[in-house]
Simulated assay, not measured.
Amino acid sequence: MKIGIIGAGHIGSALAGRLTRLGHTVYIANSRGPETLTDLAQKTGATPVTAAEAARHGELIVVTIPLKNIPDLPRDLFANVAADVPVIDTSNYYPLLRDGQIPELETGDLTESEWVQQHLGRPVVKAFNNILADHLAAPGQPAGTPGRVALPIAADDAAAKQQVSVLVEALGFDAVDGGSLRESWRQQPGGPIYCNDLPADQLRAHLTRLGTTRTEAQHAEYLANQAKQEQAMAAQGVKL
């Protein structure tokens, strides 16, 4: 496939390297211009382009930039992209360390990817947000391997979800249906699915236990857990 990646941070770089090694043609963009991606291109085999070119060339597109920067993307970025091209959103909300407070996410009116979808004006698939970049960069495991890490995929479009599932499996992870985009809160920071590298049976058990409709108590719990984690990261000097 031809895959466009918008964002050359930890997740974008990890995906670029893995996907090119699988034989895909990867076009990668950042906010500073293709000329700043020479080293990454040599390391991963991806082709540096502008964001518009990454979107135009991609048969599948990954948007993996800081959440706060989503509104800065060109409004017409996907104007010439066919409706059946899946757009993956990998973003996570870090209000303390990076993004500042976003009202719709603080109140729980929207999930993170619903917020992204509104700004992009394009249906998205929530995936690759709940695994550490260095774990994503490492080779996955063959299907059927005991304890193989599973990744949830949430979307409203069944066909797009299936395409992303095939990609996840090819990367060496079990693809697990994470429900609709409205249900993607279950894989957001602060919850038991986030960055815990769970096998499929445990991941599905958590999804079932959490239910599909987020309660006020669950939203408050996730925000509190994430705040503690961000405070710990800040104390360690971590910067995003």
Rank of each mutant, 00 (worst) to 15 (best):
T36Q: 02
L37I: 09
L37Q: 09
L37Y: 10
T38A: 14
D39I: 11
L40N: 10
Q42G: 14
G45A: 08
G45N: 12
A46H: 11
A46K: 06
T50N: 00
A51G: 04
A51R: 09
A52G: 05
A52W: 03
E53C: 03
H57D: 02
H57C: 05
H57A: 02
G58T: 09
V62D: 04
V63F: 00
V63P: 01
P66M: 07
P66V: 08
P66Y: 03
P66E: 07
L67V: 06
L67C: 05
N69E: 14
I70K: 02
I70A: 06
I70C: 08
P71Q: 07
P74A: 01
P74S: 04
R75W: 00
L77V: 07
N80P: 10
V81Y: 03
V81K: 01
V81Q: 00
V81T: 13
A82T: 02
A82H: 04
A82W: 01
V85N: 01
P86M: 04
P86S: 03
P86T: 04
V87M: 00
V87I: 14
V87Q: 00
I88S: 03
D89S: 12
D89Y: 00
T90M: 00
P95Y: 08
L96P: 01
L96W: 05
L97E: 06
R98Y: 07
R98C: 09
D99Y: 04
G100W: 05
G100Y: 07
I102W: 05
I102S: 11
I102A: 10
I102Y: 07
P103V: 12
E104P: 13
L105F: 09
T107F: 11
T107A: 10
G108E: 12
D109N: 11
L110Q: 14
L110W: 08
T111I: 07
E112M: 11
E112K: 00
E112H: 05
S113H: 14
E114Q: 15
E114V: 07
H119T: 12
H119Q: 15
